[in-house]
Amino acid sequence: MQNQLLKEANEFQEKLSAWRRALHQIPEIGLHLPKTVAFVKKELEQMDIPYTVYEESSCIVALIGSGEKCFMLRSDMDALPVREESGEPFASENGCMHACGHDMHTTTLLGAAKLLKSHERELKGTVKLLFQSAEETFQGAKAAVDAGVLENPRVDAAFAMHVAPNSENKKIIYGEYPMTSVYGFRVLLTGKGTHGSAPELGVDPINAGVHLYLALQELIAREISAMEEAVLTIGRFESGSAFNVIPHRAVLEGSLRTFKSEVRDYIICRIKEVAKGVAATYRCEVELEVLNDVPAVKCDVKLNEEIIQSVRELDSELKAYPTFHVMGSEDFSYFGEKIPTSYFFIGAGVDNQDEWVGHHNPHAKFNETCLPTAAAIYAKAAMDWLENHG
């Protein structure tokens, strides 16, 4: 049996698809998203929903309802510097791509706004809608918190969802510890450049970088228990510009992802020790820089249970499983350090399973038929929470 909110959302499926496709064609990256912000502002104005734009971080906060209690719904809006190869007729052509589905998220929150505005008189408090920038660079949520988006009115709890292009359409997963922390780092190795025919006259930073790469992988293989959960990835290794020159410098960039703070702290300490030791062994100077340091996503168990109950009341046929526990990361965790939060995944796999690929893939496709369900989940979760706590 379907709830009234879901029936209403299904009635404007075409509107949702149109929003999503328009956003998909204007992907922007980082903290400043002028075209995306302009699009969202226009739609909120047409729905007569008041909003505030935080110019420094391209965040938009909209308010629906009034009252002492406040529940926040959040969607990210930024894209990736990926050249799209999905083959969709509405594919982006500007060199960036919504390969993580944030166009779907923005559309979901606009859909929830439409539903909540039509039911505004029924709200037992305030729903705050946060359209956030720079999730992919782990800058947006912290910038939003620092800008005061959790205040005026004070947010009591928050909920967000993420679409999954490689999961069954509309299937929902949730959990207490859904996503890891992420520690991003850069290692700069400085040697002494020389002609490729005379390596003895220089100090080769590539050689040091290769040994460092291997040594860092051994931290996971030989110093962390197989029962723990930790991933250390070097995603960038750059040095040199000519085949016959030993370069002056090499750069390695990587990320560490863990759930437990003690495992994280130990590996970070060892990264620094190993980098200094390898550099000294191969006669290089070394510098380490922190690129980002984002906490793990921890969900409030009681809030999870409340929202899952709302999901089941929305549509008894929706599948929901407490299996969300992955090695990806999300800056929604910054909100979880301040207030109770919940974070779910909802499947958005297209009908042809052979076309399923993971996030950040240039071939990624997303099933737009999940949008009414996602919008209705947002709206019902907010309405129910305010009903129970207002």
Rank of each mutant, 00 (worst) to 15 (best):
P153C: 09
A208D: 14
G358L: 06
D76W: 08
D48H: 10
L130F: 01
W19D: 12
N94W: 07
H24A: 06
G277Q: 03
A18P: 00
Q139R: 12
V301A: 14
H32F: 07
T108C: 05
C70D: 09
Y334H: 13
P362S: 04
I64N: 07
G347T: 04
H248S: 14
V82N: 06
I224V: 15
K171G: 00
R283A: 13
L110K: 12
D204E: 07
I339D: 03
A275V: 08
F332Q: 05
W356H: 05
P322M: 08
T341N: 03
A381E: 07
K260N: 07
C100W: 06
L219T: 00
T233V: 10
F344Q: 12
I60W: 11
L214S: 15
A198K: 08
H360F: 06
N352A: 15
K117Y: 11
H389Q: 12
F131L: 01
K69M: 01
T36E: 01
D204A: 13
I377S: 07
H360L: 06
V311T: 04
A160S: 15
A379K: 10
Y266V: 00
I271G: 11
G193K: 11
L318S: 07
S17Q: 09
Y177I: 10
V297G: 06
Y213L: 14
E56A: 15
L115R: 10
Y282T: 05
E229R: 15
E273C: 00
G254S: 14
Q4T: 14
